[in-house]
Amino acid sequence: MSVTANPTGASQPEASGPPDFDALYQRHSREVWALVYARCLNSHTAMDITQEAFLRLWREWDHQQPILNPRAWLLRVARNLAEDHAKSAFRRYGTSSPQAMTGVEAREAPPLERLALEETFGQIRHIMQQLPQADREVLTFRYALDYETEQIAELLGINTTAVHMRLSRARQRLAERLKAQGIGQLP
C-alpha cells in the first residue's frame, strides 16, 4: 500500500489529512497495541504508545514524507517507542514497573469477584514478564487478537514452523510457572 497523501487544508478537519488515517487506525491499532503490550505488559502504556505512533504517522504525512508501508512503519516506530519507554521505566523503577510489582492496577472499587480476577491476572502478568519477549509476542498475538499462525508469522517476519514452536514452548513455560505459583482456574 502506498500512501503519499498530503494533509493540506487544515482548516477543514474532516476533509483534511490522509484519507486513510481512520481506516489505518481501525485496521492496525490493535496490532500495534499488541506488539507494545508484549513488551511493556501494561495496557494503558501500550495504548499511549500506540496513539503516539499514529500521531507520528500523521506528522510524517504532514511533512509530506512518503510512507510506502504504513503498517510496517507503525510497528517499527511503536517498537522503538516501547524500547525507549522500557529504558526510561528501568531508570525509574528497576526491572519491574509498579503495576507489575503490585499486579493490580488502580481501578474503580471492584466487587470481590473482580478483585479475585484481578489478582489472578496480576499473577499471570507477573509470570508473563518472566517469559522471553518472543514468547510474549506470540502469546499476545494469538490470544489477544486471535491471530492464526500464518498471520503471526507474517507480522513477525518468521516462518510458521517457528511460530508453532514458539507458541508451544511459550504455553509450556507459562503452564509450568502457573502450576508452580498454584494459580487455579479463573475465580
Binding site: F121, I124, R125, A144, L178
Partner: peptide, 12 residues
C-alpha cells in the same frame, strides 16, 4: 480459556 480471558481483560 485462561489466556483468552486474561488478554480480553487487558485489552481496552
Amino acid at each position: 480459556a485462561l489466556l483468552r480471558s486474561f488478554f480480553r481483560f487487558e485489552m481496552p
